[in-house]
Simulated scan of single mutants.
Amino acid sequence: MARAVGQLGIPRIPVSLRWEGEPASSYRMTDDGFEISAGPGTDLFIDPQRTAVTLNAPHLLACAEGDFLLSARVQVDFQSTFDAGALLVWLNDRAWAKLAFELSPQREPMVVSVVTRGTSDDCNAFVVDGGQVWLRVARVGTAYAFHASTDGAYWRLIRHFALYASEVPSYGFEAQSPTGAGCTATFDAIAYEPRRLLDLRDGS
Rank of each mutant, 00 (worst) to 15 (best):
P11F: 00
A84P: 02
R159H: 09
T42Q: 03
E108Q: 15
T142H: 13
K98Q: 12
D121S: 13
P23G: 09
P58D: 00
M110V: 10
R117G: 06
G141R: 11
S149L: 02
G33A: 05
T186W: 11
M110S: 11
D43S: 05
E65Y: 09
N56K: 06
T142C: 08
R136E: 07
G180C: 09
V112P: 03
H160S: 15
H147N: 02
R139Q: 15
C183W: 08
S26V: 03
V89R: 12
P14N: 01
G130I: 11
D47L: 04
T30G: 01
F126R: 14
R117K: 15
W90A: 10
L8E: 02
D77P: 08
A95I: 02
L44H: 14
A4I: 04
G180I: 01
Q132S: 15
D121T: 11
F173Y: 09
Q176Y: 04
A38W: 06
S26L: 02
T81Y: 10
V128N: 01
E193D: 11
G152L: 04
P58T: 01
D47M: 03
A24K: 03
Y154M: 01
N92I: 04
R136C: 06
D47A: 15
P11H: 01
L87W: 12
S25I: 12
S80D: 14
D77R: 10
N124W: 08
A38C: 06
M1Y: 11
D129N: 12
E167M: 15
G141M: 12
V5P: 00
S80W: 13
A4W: 05
K98E: 11
E102M: 14
P48V: 07
V127H: 10
T184Y: 03
A185C: 07
S16C: 00
A4N: 08
V15E: 12
G130T: 11
V140R: 15
K98I: 03
G33R: 11
W19S: 14
N92E: 15
D202R: 14
P11V: 01
Q49G: 13
S177N: 02
S120W: 08
D129W: 04
G141C: 09
R196H: 03
K98W: 08
F45W: 14
S170N: 08
R201I: 06
A72D: 05
S149M: 05
A138L: 10
M110G: 03
V112F: 08
N124A: 05
S104H: 10
I46L: 15
N124G: 07
L91D: 10
S104I: 07
T54H: 08
V76G: 09
R196L: 10
A148E: 09
I36C: 00
R136L: 11
W134R: 01
A162T: 15
E167H: 13
D151H: 00
F161A: 07
E174N: 04
P178C: 04
